[in-house]
């Protein structure tokens, strides 16, 4: 692998390798010295055109734990706000000797463009492009699910995962559908028809417009935030109605199988897609997801940057 642009292009063995590598690297997090010399002298640039705290900090922590130098470049307060194009920014980063660029961008396909336009030699890691993909989020979700429900390792064969909420605007949902299916899980998307993207029939997953019928058969349930900032129209009558039909509250939590876990990529809107008592329950693994995010991103940086750069598969 030279770039990580989408979860759809990762095959099963690559996915398992990333998860296994993350598991080994996770042990470093438990040590008193949380630092490895592996990427000493390499430069990782966080290039963020959209607001993000947890993803940027997670990548920064991951790169620093591997001893890489980290440059943070956010569009606000940079020459981007003066009208600089992605290309010119890329050429600047190339001149600064970036070995990897972690890109978050509002336009779908931005990471692919940066990786393949010939502007830079660096590895490109997609940290979210528009409503397209967010592969490291899917990897950390898969890692968290595996740790709880398939602790012996390998893939997620036979597990059933529901992804509930604003599928239409969610790059997390799209990446998870691809990755979890590649790993052998069955994915069901749950949302009102207005929040299901056109063309979902071609995705390798089932779709349900109702939450209640899927509850008793899932091993993991992932709640998504309603992304009002990406909505230019009304997709449902009222927040209260959405919450009643698609929100996870204590009553619905009690109908999940006993071993089932609740995931949320954050940021959460308590009282909307998830009630406060569910968010704070022992079944909710959000805090773990954050910790696992650092391990997974360390694994991706290691696998992309540590070798000689010649493709080994």
């Amino acid at each position: 692998m030279r770039h990580l642009l989408s979860a759809g292009e990762i095959d099963r063995d690559q996915a398992v390798l990333i998860l296994d590598t993350a598991a080994e690297l996770g042990a470093v997090t438990d040590r008193s010295i949380k630092k490895l010399p592996t990427l000493r002298g390499r430069t990782v640039v966080n290039l963020f055109y959209e607001d993000s705290t947890r993803t940027r900090i997670s990548f920064e922590a991951a790169a620093k734990r591997l001893s890489a130098d980290v440059l943070n470049f956010s569009a606000k307060g940079s020459s981007v706000s003066k009208g600089e194009s992605l290309k010119d920014t890329a050429l600047t980063l190339q001149a600064m000797g970036a070995d990897a660029v972690v890109l978050r961008h509002g336009s779908s396909g931005a990471a692919h463009r940066l990786a393949h336009a010939g502007w830079i030699d660096a590895s490109v890691i997609n940290a979210g492009d528009g409503t397209h993909e967010h592969p490291t989020q899917a990897l950390l979700d898969a890692f968290t699910i595996r740790r709880h429900l398939a602790p012996e390792g390998g893939d997620l064969a036979g597990l059933s995962v529901a992804i509930v909420g604003d599928i239409l605007h969610s790059r997390v949902a799209r990446s998870n559908v691809h990755l979890l299916t590649t790993l052998g899980a069955r994915v069901t998307l749950v949302a009102p028809p207005t929040l299901i993207p056109v063309g979902v029939e071609s995705w390798p997953c089932a779709v349900s417009y109702e939450l209640d019928p899927v509850l008793d058969s899932v091993d993991a349930i992932m709640m998504l935030r309603v992304q009002s900032e990406r909505m230019q129209a009304a997709y449902f009558p009222s927040a209260l109605e959405y919450s009643r039909l698609y929100g996870l509250d204590a009553a619905r939590l009690s109908r999940l199988p006993e071993h089932a876990i609740v995931l949320h990529p954050g940021p959460m809107n308590r009282g909307m897609e998830i009630s406060a008592d569910v968010a704070d329950s022992s079944r909710a693994v959000m805090v773990e997801q954050v910790a696992n995010g650092v391990n997974v991103r360390m694994a991706v940086l290691y696998l992309l940057l540590a070798g000689d750069g010649k493709d080994a598969g």
């Binding site: 080994e24 592996t38 540590a306 070798g307 000689d308 493709d311």
Partner: peptide
Amino acid sequence: DLRLRAVRPLEPT
């Protein structure tokens, strides 16, 4: 010698 060869999978510690 990490940069002299293809990336290696990690072994358990």
